[in-house]
Design a protein around this nucleic acid. Sequence first.
DNA 1: GCGAAAATTGTGACCGGTCACACGGCGCGA
DNA 2: TCGCGCCGTGTGACCGGTCACAATTTTCGC
Lengths: 368, 368
Amino acid sequence: MVVTGHTSSEGAPGEGAPGQGTPAERGPGGETARSVSIRDVAAAAGVSYQTVSRVINGHPSVKGSTRDRVLGTIAELGFRPNRAARALAGGTAQSVTVLTSNTTLYGYAAVLEGVEEAARTADFAVGVRVVESAEPDAVRDAVARATEAAGALIVLAFDRAGAAALAAVPDGVHLVATVETPVGEAGAGRPWVWINDREAAVTATRYLLGLGHRTVHHVAIPSSAETGQRLAGWQSALAAADAGIPPAIQAGWDSRSGYQAGRALAADPAVTAVLCGNDDLALGVTRAMIEAGRAVPGDVSIVGFDDTPQSAYFVPALTTVRLDFTELGRAAFALLHERISGRPATVARLDPELIIRESSGPPPTGGA
Amino acid sequence: MVVTGHTSSEGAPGEGAPGQGTPAERGPGGETARSVSIRDVAAAAGVSYQTVSRVINGHPSVKGSTRDRVLGTIAELGFRPNRAARALAGGTAQSVTVLTSNTTLYGYAAVLEGVEEAARTADFAVGVRVVESAEPDAVRDAVARATEAAGALIVLAFDRAGAAALAAVPDGVHLVATVETPVGEAGAGRPWVWINDREAAVTATRYLLGLGHRTVHHVAIPSSAETGQRLAGWQSALAAADAGIPPAIQAGWDSRSGYQAGRALAADPAVTAVLCGNDDLALGVTRAMIEAGRAVPGDVSIVGFDDTPQSAYFVPALTTVRLDFTELGRAAFALLHERISGRPATVARLDPELIIRESSGPPPTGGA
DNA sequence: GCGAAAATTGTGACCGGTCACACGGCGCGA
DNA sequence: TCGCGCCGTGTGACCGGTCACAATTTTCGC
């Protein structure tokens, strides 16, 4: 029943055992061997190091027989090119690091997944660095580390910490940001990629209004700015429909925070529809409503945001707005790659989509 | 309503604007400046490059006045040390890459979070590389890329792809694995870190049996071996209690897969208790049960695994086994760091904990 | 069979740091 | 006053690749 850190017994098979052909000298104490370099390979294959370099880079002007011989030697010696050396000499690092305030929340994790996937197919290494907070020290440090680690940066600027980090990135660094809204000051003058959260919120709000609800309440996630885009969209849709605009409840990201908001909302019988800033919040709100004896969607309709993989299996299944964060990540990388390599990329367009499931419906007939 | 890749207008503020003091020459076309090196700083501060190196590394034998002058110049020129050069010259890369088959599933994401956190405080850069499958080509490629990118590796070997990757890591690479079970062949002879899933499964199964259930069914997640440790624990607890051992249902990781398994289970009235390989599966199973008209926990008790942040807010709230994956990630890094730096680390011990909530209870009285 | 173009291969310098070692100046005991 | 050790600093080589260019084959037309 424990997490155990355990070093398998010293001298165990496979650990520090002399490799079959690694040439570099080991210290007498059995230290780790120095890794095989192209010069080692060259010597063993009887060619120059440049030829080895050509072979590993697939350069065309190498005779077939030579190539085969070198390739054989490479396999035999277990040669692996050193990325640091390559980056240093070649100038181009072939790596991105993702700068974010979080790696586990659905949206962030999905963007990261998309970036990794795209980066992998482009043969880029990907790094991750989290910015713990929006405090200047934390931000400065994070940006410094991230920029020294890689040639390029993708900053997830959905929240305060991310936006602060984005603003702190020095010029001359290859950079793409994923932002809430392109007009924010943090994103000024820098290439970005986004999902139109605002429009998505408008759509969701209109949908609820169309169902007959007098108004829609909102439980908001933290944002990168004073008012988030989801909140702004909700407000504007309400205004456009001449519906009352109740105060938004500012929450965090997680279900616990949604639950607390939900308890407050459940106490108010006028609440018949709630738009939540994400699906986790929606889960918490739903639970609070049900605990308070208010049926979902019978008494209260609840709509989420993001369409996490779980939300279709909630009870009731959650009506939500699907946002393709993974694709957003891919797009961010594509844009970055384009700026680094000059090769233009096509960035997919994709629309948020309202997924209507069980948690929403018309307001109660006798209700508000 | 679109994801938009957009390069803010050329010549926009902040993009390629001449830095106030970057010395390196720009091409006439306004290309990006070469970055500032220690030699640039040295020249500007009137010292040798070695002195600059000493300053940035906090070497003690530098006169205070010199240090201040150099530090001033560094700030003025916006110098950032180049990690690649440092790794190349110093031998030690100060970076880990996490090799995993997935980055978004709760367990994996949490381990990654823990690794990142620990690595960050140790001033290590962290990379991520996913292994798409257990196929030899994919594995070989992933391992090759991962090892060339960094000096050290943490392999998440919970599943087939991860275990295959672990087995494929060449000797001489700093490595720690997170494994399902330390006796597996993949982990042989390599340092590892683990959570005792087996015991946790025993505990959960015993708990259900103790509630009065005749037996417990199991919906299994994919595993790194023939039979996973969670499954093995479940089996052994059943055997120890002389309960019948129904065939386990092999599922995937996600709620959809749990839902399918749940439908099958719901059709069998003898099923009164289900232990699920993770919380997502449990969510799907629960939904399937409820759809089939079987109350949870009235007719069927459901227990999950992992304690994801959402599971407390499910309806009904999920009984589950809490596993601290984040701590596991921290432990993995600590162990790795110890092996790299020689400095011994203390690895926390922590126990899986059964969290009893609403989804489990005694079997129906009139039932099986 | 010969010269030139094309195909291959090799050489030297360099990327931006670090290491090992050398060097000048100073305080101090003999 | 001299020699020694220490402090602070500078010099040269090197890490493992890449680039630009030179040198060496081949290939081929005539």
